[in-house]
């Protein structure tokens, strides 16, 4: 097994498996976030956030998710550096757009952009909700249960910080591009692909990436337009 993960295919396998895990995580994350726009009183989102903060399953998944991100970023970086070194002298004239998509060639750049916003994002929400607290994170009672008013924290930022909202939407689009290639590529890497399924998986990639990108964009748009 040690040998496997020291091989080129083994390293890519780790990027793909962690990437698939992150793909599932995004579905859960987006579903919870969408509760923001279906109830302006905030009760629905607060209940969702409270569930995520207290459910023991989520407690197990949280460190796993952190490991997933670390493995993904670490191995993606190793793979990218080694691949860069495999061609010490480049071409004078090169037309890669004739044979491959932009996003497939720029996964590392896209990943870097995602990572930058991820850190910003953790700082704005996760750290405050989990550790430091925030004046906006007052306690509210919903259905007789006391919980933090996460809705207030999140919605205030979108309502009041126009540029944060714009940045968030740009981030969502970059994430979408990462996934247009990443989704089907992960299946290819783990060997779950063939002559027929390549096209199908590429189509599903586009659908999945569009849903994720559009889904994350709708939330700040909603607050910009209606508040």
């Amino acid at each position: 097994m040690n040998k496997l993960f020291a091989s080129s295919i083994g390293r890519k396998l780790l990027v793909a498996l962690s990437g698939m895990f992150l793909i599932l995580f995004l579905v859960v994350h987006l579903s919870i976030n969408l509760l923001l726009i279906f109830d302006d009183s905030g009760a629905l989102f607060n209940k969702g956030a409270h569930f995520m903060a207290t459910n023991p399953m989520v407690g197990v998944m949280e460190p796993l998710l952190a490991v997933g991100f670390v493995v993904h970023i670490m191995y993606a970086t190793i793979v990218t550096i080694r691949n860069y070194r495999a061609r010490p002298n480049g071409y004078l004239k090169n037309l890669p757009s004739a044979n491959s998509s932009w996003e497939s060639r720029n996964m590392f750049v896209l990943g870097g952009i995602i990572l930058f916003f991820l850190i910003l994002h953790l700082n704005h929400f996760f750290v405050k909700m989990k550790f430091t607290g925030d004046p906006l994170l007052t306690t509210v009672i919903i259905d007789g249960v006391a919980m933090k008013n996460s809705y207030l924290l999140v919605s205030s930022l979108f309502k009041e910080n126009f540029w944060y909202s714009i940045g968030y939407m740009i981030w969502a689009v970059f994430l979408g591009f990462h996934l247009v290639h990443g989704f089907w590529s992960a299946f290819q890497t783990v060997g779950l692909n063939n002559e027929v399924w390549i096209q199908r998986l590429q189509n599903v990639s586009i659908i999945y990436a569009t849903i994720i990108a559009a889904g994350f964009c709708i939330i700040p748009l909603y607050f910009i337009i209606f508040f």
Partner: peptide, 20 residues
């Protein structure tokens, strides 16, 4: 695969440039 790695070829990131 071991030989391919040893000789310094890069790994596949599924860009599809090869097939094209």
């Amino acid at each position: 695969v071991a030989k391919m790695d040893e000789l310094g070829f890069g790994s596949c990131t599924n860009t599809g440039a090869c097939e094209a």
